[in-house]
Amino acid sequence: MQERARRTRAKLIRAAAEVFAESGFAGASVSRITDRAGVTLGSMYFHFKNKEALAREIVRSQPDIVSPPLAAKGLQRLIDITLTWSYQMLDEPLLLAGARLVTDQELFISAEENSHQQWAEVAALALTEAKDMGQLRDGVDIPAFARMVVSACTGAQMHAQMESGRRDLPQRVEEIWYCVLPAIAGPGTAELMVFGETRGRPAAGLKKRKP
């Protein structure tokens, strides 16, 4: 793809994310998206068949957007992913669009490709690594726990949006981990996990797990 075409595609995705975040799937029109992007309808249909295709692209891209600033493995990696997501949810249009689209996904994406399934797979990979590192208690059901993490974070995001405009979402995500770590972490593991803004944003302070 030529550079100009890549820029146009990126502008369309960004504009669509902003419009979806503001108005949801049903309230977003193709003309409003192209106006926001500053491109023609012809350019839009060259890159995307319809509004549904744009929404699918945004939902599918969600895990790729979240990249923790610090390297980690296993359980710390999963904690960092959730914390990075929580901080980016404060101002990242693509993630905000994904949150707004979550209740409309049946209109444009299959159950096998929805964002919950994607995030559960990401969580399961980190948990499998944690198991291989000896960080998990015996008998932890990795697929079930991965789904629980996704469901808990989704619920935290919804309540944070209603109650604080998402300002306290990072705190809510940390609280989830404080509650569940004792149930899944092997001996001595929970105490080694690090929380704080630095795990989701660079140049911030560290803090260990609450007792």
Rank of each mutant, 00 (worst) to 15 (best):
residue 139 G to Q: 13
residue 108 F to N: 02
residue 159 H to Q: 09
residue 152 A to H: 12
residue 84 T to C: 15
residue 156 A to Q: 00
residue 153 C to L: 14
residue 78 L to P: 08
residue 126 A to E: 12
residue 112 E to F: 03
residue 121 E to C: 11
residue 169 L to P: 00
residue 157 Q to D: 04
residue 77 R to Y: 12
residue 119 W to K: 15
residue 125 L to F: 13
residue 161 Q to M: 01
residue 129 E to D: 13
residue 116 H to E: 06
residue 127 L to E: 04
residue 168 D to W: 10
residue 93 P to Y: 00
residue 156 A to S: 07
residue 98 G to N: 00
residue 115 S to D: 06
residue 131 K to R: 15
residue 169 L to Y: 09
residue 152 A to W: 13
residue 118 Q to T: 09
residue 165 G to Y: 05
residue 144 A to L: 02
residue 137 R to N: 07
residue 86 S to L: 07
residue 160 A to E: 00
residue 135 Q to K: 09
residue 143 P to H: 10
residue 166 R to D: 01
residue 159 H to S: 14
residue 137 R to E: 07
residue 108 F to W: 06
residue 89 M to E: 03
residue 83 L to N: 05
residue 145 F to V: 14
residue 159 H to K: 04
residue 81 I to R: 13
residue 131 K to M: 13
residue 120 A to G: 00
residue 158 M to C: 07
residue 139 G to R: 14
residue 109 I to P: 06
residue 168 D to C: 05
residue 82 T to M: 12
residue 92 E to R: 12
residue 120 A to N: 05
residue 92 E to A: 15
residue 135 Q to N: 10
residue 95 L to Q: 07
residue 146 A to K: 15
residue 148 M to Q: 08
residue 89 M to F: 03
residue 132 D to G: 13
residue 90 L to W: 06
residue 133 M to N: 09
residue 166 R to K: 09
residue 143 P to F: 05
residue 135 Q to A: 12
residue 121 E to W: 04
residue 111 A to P: 03
residue 90 L to C: 10
residue 156 A to N: 01
residue 112 E to W: 05
residue 82 T to P: 04
residue 160 A to P: 01
residue 135 Q to G: 12
residue 144 A to G: 01
residue 97 A to H: 00
residue 144 A to H: 03
residue 155 G to K: 01
residue 92 E to I: 08
residue 127 L to V: 00
residue 93 P to N: 09
residue 139 G to M: 14
residue 76 Q to R: 02
residue 167 R to D: 06
residue 77 R to G: 14
residue 78 L to Y: 11
residue 159 H to G: 04
residue 97 A to G: 08
residue 99 A to M: 12
residue 165 G to M: 08
residue 155 G to I: 05
residue 126 A to N: 13
residue 147 R to Q: 11
residue 141 D to S: 07
residue 131 K to A: 15
residue 112 E to T: 06
residue 105 Q to Y: 03
residue 76 Q to E: 11
residue 123 A to D: 11
residue 149 V to L: 14
residue 157 Q to E: 02
residue 127 L to F: 08
residue 163 E to P: 04
residue 114 N to R: 06
residue 130 A to N: 04
residue 104 D to K: 08
residue 124 A to L: 00
residue 170 P to K: 05
residue 160 A to Y: 01
residue 157 Q to I: 01
residue 164 S to D: 11
residue 86 S to P: 08
residue 155 G to P: 03
residue 167 R to Y: 03
residue 98 G to S: 06
residue 116 H to T: 09
residue 151 S to V: 14
residue 77 R to T: 12
residue 79 I to E: 13
residue 142 I to L: 11
residue 152 A to V: 14
residue 114 N to E: 06
residue 81 I to C: 13
residue 92 E to H: 15
residue 120 A to K: 07
residue 108 F to P: 05
residue 154 T to W: 13
residue 125 L to E: 15
residue 129 E to N: 07
residue 80 D to I: 01
residue 93 P to K: 02
residue 94 L to S: 02
residue 139 G to W: 12
residue 80 D to F: 06
residue 76 Q to H: 11
residue 104 D to F: 03
residue 164 S to Q: 07
residue 136 L to E: 14
residue 113 E to V: 04
residue 78 L to V: 14
residue 147 R to H: 08
residue 89 M to D: 02
residue 86 S to A: 08
residue 112 E to Q: 13
residue 130 A to I: 03
residue 160 A to C: 07
residue 95 L to I: 11
residue 101 L to K: 00
residue 169 L to W: 04
residue 153 C to G: 05
residue 88 Q to F: 10
residue 88 Q to K: 15
residue 89 M to N: 03
